[in-house]
Amino acid sequence: MSPRGGGDRSMVPEAEFRSYYGRPIVRPPVWTHDIASYLFTGGLAAGSALLAAGGQATGDATLRRVGRTVTLGALGASTYFLIIDLGRPERFHHMLRVAKPTSPMSMGTWILASFGGVAAVAGAAEFAPLLPSRLLRRVLPPAGDAAGYGAAVLAPALATYTAVLFADTAVPSWNAVHPELPFMFAGSALASGAGVGLIAAPGKPARRMAVLGAAMELAAGHRVEHGHGLLSEPYRQGRPGKLLQAARLLTAAGAAGAVLGRRSRAVSALSGLALLAGSALTRFGVFEAGVVSAKDPKYTVVPQRERLAAKTEVTGQP
């Protein structure tokens, strides 16, 4: 959807366009910040689930325990945010009436539900010793292990489907960045998971995960912010621009701290916090950039006009 073949264009000249009293053409999302929070907590759940699975696989019980617990908490929060943002929360279960491949939200609901199922078992396994039932105490840990791997398999889907959720809309700046957004969100989810690791049980895997996640997020983010001409503009300007800039700094600092602060528990924890905050701000920034792009008719009209002009050039017909 980028106007000029997707090339980098940091300087977009003030666009001349016409509209109806400057009113939006596409409707700005009715979603509130709950959805941005949902994105963050969902990503966090996914990242922590991977962390837990890694801990499980490498025999790092602390990582596993922390990972599974945070996953469980983040899962609860994201479910809450998702439901609370509905116009009719009591009808949440209507989401489960159908499974619709054309609806990322429907797919996402099923991903979330499946992930929720396994993550809950994995989380519960951590609390098995505290349970009164002997049977549960016996069955849960191995089931939890299986569930932990299951959650890890589903986690990347959970972290990236939300990118499709945003991209598959008429919101100009969300839709335009659909090639990179999943990477940005995947990186962001990894980084947040790593952040949890850095705080609870700093170690090499968490540091590596932090670096890899941050790198992915920043690289994809760079394309989002610069690769789509006019439609990248909202990611750089105004409030969303500030949010994303802060997110970038925090993420970069978090990653740097993760590597350089190896020796210090405090620096590690701070780095973890920075990664978490960066991840959260990324989602808020992306969310708000989309809203801005929907509110200003410029972002609908100008790229579409350019697209039409390009078509005319090709076909020689209006």
């Binding site: 991977l50 986690a155 990347p156 489907y161 999943p182 969100f185 990894l190 995960m209 992915m216």
Partner: peptide, 18 residues
């Protein structure tokens, strides 16, 4: 497709991390 790729990349990163 892009989301799938990103998901793979994410999974791979986790594997690499550990």
């Amino acid at each position: 497709k892009r989301a799938g790729l990103a998901a793979l990349a994410m999974a791979a990163s986790a594997v690499v991390a550990f």
